[in-house]
């Protein structure tokens, strides 16, 4: 049960992160590879303020959101002239600068050791603390609801239409009198603010952060979520998050497969594998699963699973995924 609650909280955090990425990638076709780095900045701001200065929940949250917004403005200023491939490389470089700073600025971020001991939030005026995971779950989903309400508005108003239009034909949008530059930067700003919110929640929930939690692997996960849920689709992204967070979970139970088989067949495992045909079919599968359940294999296996899913989805939807034709 405890584990189930953990999964639901993680889903909540990723919902915020993925939906905000969906705003820039799905609507604006802005391939912002620095999204997870901004999320990392949000997590680090909260972690540092909470451990070093002992700031409260709302203070940390607001600071994380605003500082991430500031990073979005810097990113927007750097990348405003860039299109497509240049833009992807520019944001990739920006995210690499941030991860290099997280690793090397030891006096501030403690380098690869990370920041341990982030206290969970407490609301003294309500006499509530969030050390209990159920309470934290409620807090997370209140924030998810607020985020989704605001993002839903952003996905369905003039702003989204302008963003879509500029991704399709920048000059024509400009000719209609829309400020494409402002729209682009606003989409960064909004997405990064929500990424900061997700980072702040993550730091509070996990209590310990280090640079390895915010690597490119994480970016690929978020990208997979948005691509699986169809870029630009609000509820598709929700489906993608839930599906992909839960997908590798059965991998954790692979070491119990022989036990399950013994229970199913009512005989010890060596006897099962000796059954003609059926046993020969089962044995290689089971030994592969046992191999995959080793901790040193499980992590890369999970990465590979996401990469393969990303590829398969892109392969089968390659005509429709980022169409050149009009969609607005």
């Amino acid at each position: 049960m405890e584990y189930f609650i953990h999964l639901i909280i993680i889903i909540g955090i990723y919902l915020i992160l993925a939906q905000s990425f969906n705003l820039t990638l799905g609507l604006g076709l802005l391939f912002n590879l620095a999204h997870v780095s901004v999320y990392a900045v949000g997590a680090y701001v909260t972690a540092l303020l909470a451990t070093e200065l002992g700031m409260g929940f709302f203070g940390c949250l607001v600071c994380s959101v605003l500082i991430c917004g500031l990073f979005a403005i810097i990113l927007g200023a750097i990348s405003i002239k860039l299109k497509e491939d240049y833009f992807a490389i520019g944001t990739l470089a920006f995210s690499s600068v941030i991860s290099a700073l997280l690793i090397n600025w030891k006096s501030l971020t403690h380098g690869v050791l990370g920041i341990p001991g982030i206290p969970r939030p407490e609301f003294s005026f309500l006499k509530v603390d969030f050390y209990d995971n159920i309470n934290f779950l409620v807090l997370t989903y209140v924030l998810v609801a607020i985020t989704f309400f605001m993002l839903y508005l952003f996905f369905n108003n003039f702003f989204a239409r302008t963003l879509r239009a500029q991704s399709e034909f920048r000059q024509a949008t400009k000719a209609l009198g829309k400020n494409t530059r402002l729209t682009r930067n606003m989409s960064f700003f909004i997405a990064s603010c929500f990424a900061g919110l997700a980072g702040s929640l993550y730091a509070y929930y996990i209590n310990y952060i280090d640079p390895s939690s915010f690597s490119l692997t994480e970016m690929i996960f978020v990208l997979t979520v948005v691509v699986v849920g169809k870029p630009g689709s609000f509820w598709g992204c929700v489906f993608g998050t839930v599906f992909l967070v839960l997908l590798p979970e059965p991998l954790r139970f692979t070491r119990d497969v022989p036990l399950a088989l013994e229970w199913l067949f009512g005989m010890p495992y060596p006897q099962i594998s000796a059954i003609p045909v059926l046993g020969w079919l089962i044995t290689p599968v089971v030994s592969f699963l046992l191999y995959a359940s080793r901790p040193s294999v499980l992590g890369p296996m999970r990465q590979m699973l996401y990469a393969v899913i990303l590829f398969i989805v892109v392969y089968f939807r390659r005509e429709a995924l980022f169409p050149v034709q009009r969609r607005v």
């Binding site: 076709l29 391939f31 497509e84 491939d85 992807a88 690929i220 990208l223 691509v227 990469a307 393969v308 990303l310 590829f311 892109v314 392969y315 390659r318 995924l321 980022f322």
Partner: peptide
């Protein structure tokens, strides 16, 4: 976008 995403994977 597509080749970039697929080569990432």
């Amino acid at each position: 976008f597509l080749p970039f995403v697929t080569t990432l994977s």
